[in-house]
């Protein structure tokens, strides 16, 4: 065997091993969240939109400072509208950006007054006013929320309360349990969106709706 054929056969051997390893790993990946992790996915009293008795639940881990989350916001709304009553979306906090933890606390405080969605919509729509170079500025975010008609005294107390801090800490912990490393991260009826993209999310939701109804 000359040098050239040694090189080619070893290179081919390495390539085959690599492809086999990738195929093996992917075939072993569970397509649903493991049962013992499900409690981390299903929490009560989280901000929800869509049919109360919907059989398809989208859980979205999001950061209000995340640009992709804000682009996905109307798309997810469309999904809920398209499958009226059949699909609901639950929002979970994943404050991955610097400074976002305080901002999601404000959102949770707004949620306690039943105003999560107007507050989230406002923050998404005005991201450039309170997010600079991927760093959240909670003061500017609060200035935006103040334009909503809320009980602002109560909101100011609530967002710094232990109760809200505990909920945010729980969501962050759940995100770590479910290996949420980027936002938005979607789970549809416990199935993680493995390949990220709107079409992929649409397909997953469609498949779950078809299976449930």
């Amino acid at each position: 065997m000359n040098n050239k054929s040694i090189f080619i056969s070893v290179a081919a051997f390495i390539a085959v091993i690599f492809i086999a390893a990738v195929a093996m790993y992917q075939s072993q990946q569970p397509s649903t969240v493991a049962n013992e992790l499900l409690p981390a996915l299903e929490r009560e009293n989280v901000p929800t939109k869509g049919g109360k008795n919907a059989k398809v639940t989208i859980v979205e881990f999001f950061d209000p400072a995340c640009g992709t989350c804000s682009q996905f916001y109307p798309l997810v709304n469309n999904l809920v509208k398209k499958y009226q009553g059949k699909v609901k979306v639950e929002m979970r906090y994943a404050p991955l950006h610097q400074g976002s933890e305080d901002v999601v606390k404000m959102l949770e405080a707004a949620h306690m007054q039943g105003q999560f969605w107007p507050a989230a919509e406002l923050l998404f729509a005005n991201q450039q006013r309170w997010v600079e170079h991927h760093v959240s500025n909670p003061d500017n975010a609060l200035a935006g929320i103040k334009t909503l008609s809320l009980d602002h005294e109560r909101l100011a107390q609530d967002w710094q309360s232990d109760k809200v801090a505990k909920i945010i800490a729980r969501d962050i912990r759940d995100g770590q349990t479910l290996k949420v490393r980027a936002t938005p991260q979607f789970f549809v009826n416990g199935k993680p969106l493995i390949v990220f993209g709107y079409q992929e999310l649409l397909d997953l939701v469609e498949a779950e709706v078809a299976a449930a109804y």
């Binding site: 070893v10 390495i14 690599f18 390893a21 992917q26 490393r181």
Partner: peptide
């Protein structure tokens, strides 16, 4: 040649962990 084999295996293993297993 063996040095190249080490470099190639290292490259593929690191890509496997980051792109397939999706470790940060």
């Amino acid at each position: 040649f063996i040095a190249w084999v080490f470099a190639t295996c290292g490259t593929l293993i690191s890509l496997f962990f980051s792109e397939i297993v999706q470790l940060p």
